[in-house]
């Protein structure tokens, strides 16, 4: 890996054009001192290829919609400085792996969202609005376990990083199982047992090889691999008991 060339030189950027069938097209983009991969894609779209399709929203690492494959690895493009990834002035940007491609850099997230349903994602409250709110100690072990995975924003980076998903699209994948982990540890969730059983159904957590590529690439340093290991251990220990108040 080398530094990008000087201000007046150019980056050589290969961008995926097309859907599932398509090709990499090369663009020359001025190299700047400060630019992210998303900036480069935007520059191509604004000045060279107006019909280039790509997704983004917040541009500051909050929404997770700008995830793409950059030089072979899944990343949030808005949080990836060119200097971190450029390889000898070269950059290759493709849609996320493991998902159907719609157009150019945009992939269809529906299969990913479907995995959440398969792994028992919906929260199911056990109280009504007339009941007092549950009294949960923030530092109780269960709450801490749930909190560890809670910040996930469904960006699908981990799903794209997972090799098991790559060879078995029926495997529900790291994000959905991480979600299941937060739910089985959430004592307010009325269907903890059901969620656990879904997480352990065919193509559930026992398909995970624990190689941790999901954890390695999660842009907000969550640890889906650990959540999955936690679920596997629960098969022996049973659901954790509610914390004593």
């Amino acid at each position: 890996m080398t530094e990008p060339k000087t201000k007046d030189s150019h980056l050589s950027v290969n961008v995926w054009r097309g859907g599932n069938e398509g090709e990499l097209v090369n663009y020359q983009v001025p190299a700047r001192e400060n630019q992210t991969v998303l900036d480069v894609i935007t520059e191509i779209q604004r000045f060279q290829q107006p019909d280039l399709a790509y997704r983004f929203a917040c541009r500051v690492g909050v929404c997770g919609s700008c995830a793409m494959t950059v030089n072979g690895l899944p990343r949030w493009t808005c949080r990836t400085h060119i200097k971190k990834v450029v390889d000898n002035g070269q950059l290759t940007v493709e849609p996320l792996r493991n998902l159907p491609r719609i157009k150019d850099l945009v992939c269809d997230l529906e299969p990913f969202i479907d995995t959440w349903k398969k792994a028992g994602a919906p929260f199911s409250g056990s109280r009504t609005r007339y009941d007092p709110p549950a009294n949960i100690k923030p530092d109780s072990p269960l709450r801490q376990a749930a909190d560890a995975g809670l910040q996930c924003i469904n960006c699908a980076v981990c799903y794209s990083a997972c090799d098991v998903v790559h060879w078995n699209r029926d495997y529900v994948g790291p994000a959905a199982l991480n979600r299941a982990w937060t739910l089985v540890n959430d004592v307010r969730h009325a269907k903890r047992q059901e969620t656990f059983e879904k997480a352990f159904s065919e193509n559930g957590c026992q398909s995970c090889h624990s190689h941790g590529n999901c954890t390695r690439h999660c842009p907000i340093q969550l640890n889906p691999s650990e959540s999955i290991t936690g679920l596997k251990k629960m098969v022996f220990k049973g659901l954790p008991k509610e914390d004593k108040k």
Binding site: E197, F200, S201, E202, G204, Q206, K232, V235, F236
Partner: peptide, 11 residues
């Protein structure tokens, strides 16, 4: 069934 296969395999 998966759960039981998993347990049987580990045990």
């Amino acid at each position: 069934m998966n759960r039981y296969l998993f347990i049987a395999q580990r045990l």
